[in-house]
C-alpha cells in the first residue's frame, strides 16, 4: 500500500526521530511511504485555544497537502482525533462547505498508527525487538476520542525482549492539554507530578505512548527530576530491530534509517 505520512508539526520540528521511525516501520512491513512536502499542522492547537477562524487556512493547507493520498498515517492520536472531530466543523462554521466536505473525506482515510497497524494492516507482531522494561500511558485523545483501546498494548506485547509493566492510574490525564500546560501551568504540573509518581512506581526504564506531545510533557518532567526513566514514542519501539542495535545502544531505539527511496515490497 502507498501510505502518506503526516508527521505533525510538533514531531516534524521537535522530535523528527518519531516520524523517521514511523516511516521505517511501515517500509519494513512492505509499504511504500510518501511524505507530502507541503504538510504543516492539523490546526488543533489553534482550535483548542480559541482561534477556530484562524485555523481554517491551516486546515485548508493540510487538505491540499494530502489531496489524493490513498491512506494517511500519523504517529499522533491527538492530531488524528482533531482531523476526525474538528477540521470539518471549523470549516463549516466558517461557511466553507467545500473545505468541510474535503476534510471529512480526508479524515475517512486518515489513521492513527496503532489503529492502522491492527485494523487496516491486520498485524500485531511487527517484528520489533526492544529489550527493556516499558510502561504504557494511554493518552486521553487516543483513549477517549479515537478509542484505540488495547491496540497499542497488543502491539507492545509482541515486541521481543520487551517487558511490559502495568501503569497504575493509567487512564488519568498527564496534564499536558496543549496550551493548558502553559495557561494553567500549576494545575498541569500537579497532574504531571502524580503521573510521574505512577510511572516511577513501575520501575520501568521507558514510558511510552502514542502522542509525542504528551511524551514531551512527561519526558520533560522526568528529565527535570533527573529520573532514570525516559520517554520513547510507540512508533520508535515498534521500529526498533535487532539488526539495528549498536554497541552503545542503551534505551535509545534502534531504528535503521533507509536513505534510498522507498520501494514497494
Amino acid at each position: 500500500m502507498k501510505v502518506a505520512l503526516f508527521a505533525t508539526c510538533l514531531v516534524d520540528t521537535m522530535t523528527p526521530s518519531v516520524a523517521h521511525a514511523t516511516a521505517s516501520l511501515l517500509q519494513r512491513l512492505g509499504h511504500e511511504v510518501v511524505v507530502p512536502p507541503t504538510q504543516a499542522c492539523c490546526g488543533q492547537m489553534h482550535v483548542n485555544t480559541g482561534y477556530r477562524r484562524e485555523a481554517v487556512s491551516i486546515v485548508a493547507n493540510h487538505v491540499r497537502a494530502f489531496a489524493g493520498a490513498e491512506a494517511i498515517v500519523s504517529p499522533s492520536g491527538s492530531c488524528v482525533a482533531s482531523i476526525h472531530h474538528q477540521q470539518a466543523d471549523v470549516a463549516r462554521r466558517a461557511g466553507d462547505e467545500t473545505l468541510a466536505r474535503d476534510a471529512e473525506e480526508l479524515a475517512g482515510r486518515t489513521h492513527e498508527l496503532s489503529q492502522f497497524l491492527v485494523d487496516v494492516l491486520g498485524v500485531t507482531d511487527v517484528g520489533a525487538y526492544y529489550p527493556h522494561r516499558v510502561t504504557y500511558h494511554p493518552t486521553c485523545h487516543s483513549l477517549r476520542l479515537l478509542k484505540v483501546g488495547d491496540r497499542p498494548l497488543r502491539l507492545l506485547r509482541e515486541v521481543r525482549g520487551l517487558e511490559l509493566a502495568e501503569l497504575p492510574g493509567a487512564e488519568q490525564c498527564c496534564g499536558f492539554g496543549g496550551t493548558f500546560a502553559v495557561k494553567n501551568a500549576d494545575t498541569s504540573t500537579a497532574m504531571l507530578t502524580d503521573k510521574m509518581a505512577n510511572v516511577l512506581s513501575t520501575h520501568a526504564e521507558i514510558c511510552t505512548a502514542g502522542d509525542a506531545s504528551c511524551l514531551m510533557h512527561i519526558g520533560g518532567g522526568l528529565s527535570r527530576l533527573r529520573a532514570g526513566t525516559r520517554t520513547v514514542h510507540l512508533a520508535e519501539i515498534l521500529a526498533s530491530t535487532e539488526e539495528a542495535v549498536t554497541p552503545h545502544q542503551s534505551t535509545k531505539p534502534a531504528v535503521s534509517r533507509p536513505t534510498t527511496p522507498a520501494v514497494t515490497a
Binding site: 516534524d12 520540528t13 521537535m14 523528527p16 512536502p37 500546560a181 504540573t189 519526558g219 520533560g220 518532567g221
Partner: peptide
Amino acid sequence: RDLPTPPTSTFV
C-alpha cells in the same frame, strides 16, 4: 519541565 534542544533538521 525540560524542553528538548531543537534538532538540526526537521523530518520533512
